[in-house]
Write a protein that binds this DNA or RNA. Structure first.
Length: 389
DNA sequence: CTAGGGTTAG
């Protein structure tokens, strides 16, 4: 199109990019749209906020929220839901809750966004409370709502509650999705009920996907059920012979049981299939903060800390060392990253190299999903390359 | 009559 791109054309394109995960393109196009002098409306802003959520771009998300207020754009049901999701994914769960509380009308998706967010943050009681309130208010949950409810139970060992919610779901006539089955398998596995989990998988009316087999295999690490390992790994490699993750998982599993012949067998299989793994890598967003700080005349890393002081984290402002910055971000609780790559504008932030070194060398624990990092990336959980290599 | 929008397990 030439110069006649109107609001709908811009919004359609931004929404398309956002939906397929090309968030930089989505946000870049939003900038272009502004430069072209086309005023966005609430529909445009849903896609922009959603792109921020997917990118874990809290600073930009906050800026866009302020922009929405400044331009007096109507915050309707869909935009509120997008904001809830963005704040939850970017680590500000209380702000997500505040957006929800301010809504005048809440449908299934709005409730689900908050419940899933609370569950991800480990606020299990709150998640289940909101679910009860949802039922009391006669808002019909759907299978996504139950992903939140069941994963909440899984993450705090509420195996009996989880089973009850599973019946509730069926009684409501909701057909469980693959994700719902996955939640139940995870729930049973985390509760140490590998046998129940395996029976559950065998009894599934649809063919389990690779995620489900990996969930079972991960749980098999602390069990002696060789039969389950054998059957699950067979299924997994049939489903995804080209996914390096699977070979790494299986190799590490066998290594943990000192079955070295099987470890080398996995390596061989992997090599024969021309599958290669690369070292794990995570990224955090520091660049635009650093940029802003630089403009304010501070040293970048100091600025990053100063800028990022939220309501909940006053003490972060006092940090003056990159290691503390990393701690503030919750990175030290991370299991996966052996390399931290700081995206874009590295030159503004030399200290980030130090952060990366410290984290990759010194720490090896699980992340807590609280801080303003892209925790949804960090908790991807598939990175076991160090053990493997 | 009126294009473009939100939630998803390991």
């Amino acid at each position: 199109m030439a110069a006649d791109k109107n609001l709908v054309a811009w919004s359609a394109m931004i929404g398309g990019y956002s939906r397929v995960g090309m968030v930089n393109e989505a946000l870049g196009l939003f900038r272009e749209m502004q430069a072209a002098g086309v005023e966005p409306d609430e529909v445009t802003m849903v896609s922009v906020i959603s792109a921020c959520a997917k990118a874990g771009a809290l600073d930009l998300g906050r800026w866009v929220h302020a922009y929405i207020d400044r331009k007096a754009i109507t915050v309707d049901l869909e935009l509120s839901t997008a904001l809830i999701d963005m704040y939850a994914k970017c680590g500000l769960i209380e702000r997500a809750r505040r957006v929800f509380d301010a809504m005048v009308e809440r449908d299934t998706k709005a409730w689900s966004a908050l419940i899933v967010g609370l569950a991800k943050h480990g606020l299990v009681e709150d998640a289940l409370d909101y679910f009860s309130r949802m039922l009391e208010l006669k808002v019909r949950p759907n299978n996504v709502t139950f992903i939140g409810v069941l994963s909440a139970c899984a993450h705090s060992g509420l195996v009996d509650d989880g089973r009850r919610y599973w019946s509730t779901m069926q009684n409501l006539g909701i057909i469980p999705s693959m994700e719902n089955y996955g939640c139940m398998v995870d729930l049973l596995c985390r509760s140490g009920l590998l046998d129940d989990a395996y029976s559950f998988v065998i009894g599934m009316p649809i063919s389990p996907n690779s995620v489900i087999w990996r969930t079972l295999l991960a749980a098999s690490k602390s069990s002696n059920r060789i039969d389950i390992v054998e059957s699950a790994s067979k299924k997994l490699l049939e489903l995804e012979p080209l996914n390096p993750e699977n070979y790494v998982l299986l190799s590490n599993l066998y290594a943990s049981k000192s079955q070295w012949d099987r470890v080398s067998c996995m390596r061989k299989k992997m090599k024969d299939s021309n599958v290669t793994a690369v070292a794990g890598c995570s990224s955090i967003e520091i660049n635009d903060i650093a940029d802003r700080v630089r403009r304010a005349g501070h040293k970048p890393w100091t600025a990053a800390v100063l800028h990022d002081v939220g309501e909940e984290e006053k003490e972060v402002a006092l940090c003056e060392h990159s290691e503390r910055l990393a701690i503030a971000y919750g990175l030290l609780k991370t299991k996966a990253p052996h390399v931290i790559r700081v995206v874009k504008n590295l030159r503004f932030c030399p200290d980030c190299h130090e952060v990366a070194k410290i984290i990759s060398k010194s720490y090896n624990r699980e992340i807590i999903v609280r801080d303003r990092v892209r925790f949804h990336k960090f908790t991807g959980g598939s990175c076991s390359c160090k053990d493997f290599w």
